[in-house]
Every structure is written in structure tokens, then in C-alpha cells.
Amino acid sequence: MIHYYRKGTAPRTFVLFHGTGGTEEDLVSIGTMLDPEAHILSLRGEVNENGMNRFFKRVAEGVFDEEDLKMRAERILKEIEELLARYELKDTALHSAGYSNGANMIAGMLYLHGDVFQKSILFHPMVPLKSGPALSLNSAEVFIGAGINDPIVPYENTTQLMQELSRQGAFVTMKTYEMGHRLTLEEVEDAKAWYSAP
């Protein structure tokens, strides 16, 4: 898997997942804002949709290919494990951040594989799987940034995601914004404040 790695100075690793059409470099500056001392491991989605990189296939706008999502979630987890070993990061705390399609990929991994990340920051996500989360998320903390007037992700869908994660034991904080599907500085700063809180 194509990826970007930057060595950090703290025992924390941030795994970053871009949105549709992005690359492994898109969220590096945001990851640095969230935690300047963490190791950065930023991934590029392997699905090509009309020239745009994605982490899993979809049938239509807002309609996911759930079997493809399941297959790729497992593949990405194995890839992360290999990269952690390669860069000698296995003993670091593992966190994640993603935007849109990348946030949906993280949510899918939480649904399918439990609390694989200690802290996850999901910018404009939606429910990844109709079946809901399968495992306990008692050790997971999740920040969700939602657009109250997001034309791509219905607000009710993101609220459902928050409820389903919470029901499985995750500690979820959700904040809403009025800039549609755009990721704003305010949203990143709120995520940083959440992430940095003791």
C-alpha cells in the first residue's frame, strides 16, 4: 500500500485516511496539528473510482459495497500491522483520523474489529455497515465532526453512527458545524482540544 511516514518523538502513532480523490499527503498537515510529536502514518486508498482514490468501493453516492468494505478493512489492518513492525512502532499508542471516505473506513474497522484504535477522529462520517458494530468498543474514544447541512452525509445518519458506537461502549463526542461537507479549521481545532484533553 502506498503510504507516507514521518518519524515522531512521542510513543504515539497517528494513522491517517484521506477522503475520496485524496492522497496519502492530504491529511499530513492536519495530523501534525492534532499531535505534532506523534509518528505519522498516512495511507492511500487502493480503490480507483473514475480516477479518484478511495478506501473501498461504493454502489452509488452514499451506498457502500459492504462486502468490499469488509475485505479491505481486514487488508488495511494487516497492512498497518506490517508498517508498525517495519518502522518499529508496535509499542506506540495507535490513533486514527480520517475525512469522509477515510472516516467511513475507520468507522468500518471499528464496527468489524473492535477498538483497534485508542482514539479516532472522524470528520464527516456516516454509518459504514447496516448490521451495526459487532464487537465491544469499551476502550475506544471517538470524536465525530458532522455538518448540520452536509449535502453528502445526512445529519441523521451521523447521529445514528454516534449512537451505534456509544451502544457498543465507545466514549463518543460529536460536534456539529454549518459548513456542509467542508473540513474547517474550527473543526480541526475542536478535534485537537478533544484529543489533547487529559
Rank of each mutant, 00 (worst) to 15 (best):
G102F: 01
L112T: 08
L135I: 12
L183R: 04
V116C: 10
K192F: 01
K90T: 13
T158R: 11
L135E: 14
F123H: 08
Q168V: 09
W194L: 09
Y111A: 07
L112S: 06
P151H: 04
S29L: 10
A60N: 13
I152E: 12
K70G: 07
I106M: 00
A85D: 14
K192M: 03
D68M: 12
L94F: 09
G62K: 07
H3S: 14
Q118C: 06
D68R: 09
Y87T: 13
K78N: 14
A103Q: 10
F64H: 15
H18N: 11
R86K: 15
A103C: 10
G8Y: 05
G169I: 05
S166V: 03
P128R: 11
I40W: 03
T176N: 05
E187K: 05
P36V: 11
I152N: 11
D35G: 00
S166W: 01
D150F: 03
G19P: 11
H18S: 08
S100Q: 01
I121C: 14
I80V: 15
S131I: 03
R167T: 03
T13L: 01
Y111Q: 10
S136V: 02
Y4N: 15
S136L: 09
V116I: 04
R44E: 05
N48T: 03
Y5I: 15
N138E: 06
A60F: 08
G180R: 10
Q160D: 12
R6C: 15
E186D: 14
A10P: 00
Q168Y: 00
K175A: 15
T13N: 07
V153M: 05
I76K: 10
T176G: 00
L135P: 09
E24T: 06
F143H: 10
T159M: 05
L94N: 10
D68T: 06
M105I: 02
D190R: 10
K192H: 09
E186A: 13
A146K: 04
N104C: 06
A191Q: 00
E79F: 13
A197S: 13
T32M: 00
Y4A: 15
A93L: 14
E156Q: 12
G169A: 08
K7D: 02
K70D: 00
L69M: 07
R72K: 10
I2Q: 13
M109N: 01
R6V: 13
F17W: 01
Y99A: 02
F17R: 04
S196K: 03
Y155C: 01
F143Y: 08
M71G: 04
Y4S: 15
F56K: 07
L34R: 01
P128A: 06
V63G: 11
M105S: 07
M71L: 02
E37L: 13
M105W: 12
E79V: 13
E61D: 12
S96Y: 09
E189I: 07
S100V: 04
V142T: 03
V59S: 11
L43M: 01
E74D: 15
L122H: 04
G62D: 05
A170F: 11
Q118A: 14
N149D: 07
G108Y: 09
L94V: 09
